[in-house]
Amino acid sequence: MPLLEINSLTVDYPTRVGTVRAVDRVSISVEKGQTLGIVGESGCGKSTLGLAVIRLVPSPGIMTEGSIMIDGTDIMRLSNNEVRELRGKVGFIFQDPMTSLNPVKRIGDHFVEFIRTHEKEVSRQEALEKTGKILESLGILRERTTDYPHQFSGGMRQRVMIGLGLALNPKLLIADEPTTSLDVIVEAQILELMNKLKKDYDLTLILITHNIGIVAEMSDLIAVMYAGRVVEFGPTEQIFENPLHPYTKGLLESAPNILHPERSMHPIPGSPPDLISPPPGCKFHPRCPHAFEPCPLREPFLVMKERRFVACHLYD
């Protein structure tokens, strides 16, 4: 049984000028211990998808369709109390460590509050003890629990965020652009740390990022999203070796590659669509070099092809 199974999930944001379908009938499954990379450009729905898994889709967003099963539990049917429990089982690391920590609260108190909200029987002392252990495993001295966030560098703050994500011993950790606001050396330190923690804590990891290099390095599986839809989903090596969807191919070729500059930075023409009035049929067709008659007419289904899923009329 997969640890996470998302079935035909749809998330809508009603706005004054129309409904934005941020996530459009997405189906994904992840086995225990795997790392799934969700890649796509800004506005493709990857962050909303991540938030949906912990039932944190921001208002006015609503999950209009589909199901999300974590470890066999359908989280769409949970009561408010049960959702709180769920958020203990699934850790979440937000993108910006600068704004995600309360500047007037000590680092240790962030942990204590978080742990005791979810585990009421734990004393403050026990929570602090646990905090010290977590911080040490992240390479931060235990004494620094009494420091405030501004006394930490960007990389250290992101370690704190990861620590908070791990505080309740989750099985599943979702990291939304965990290194985007960090410098490249700090980024490498954090990614190395996440790989180590994944083993130590026996985690299943979902990594949401726009950085193709990071998914190549970290993930077992990739889901490529475009305009709310998963257009391709499968094992990382296969997708890199032979991308099926024209968007996947374009995305891989547009990424900078330090080892092979000649193989990189080929642009995709046009720009991602406005989701209030997306193009008809396949949403990628206006930018697609292989578009043909059916593409503007009807949307392609996600079909199984060469041990992966792809949504493109070329493979119907």
Binding site: V184, E187, A188, L191, E192, A216, N257
Partner: peptide, 15 residues
Amino acid sequence: AIPVPDPKHKPERLI
């Protein structure tokens, strides 16, 4: 430190 978009590339990190 730069992530390379190639899953077969195993970087030797000197961080």
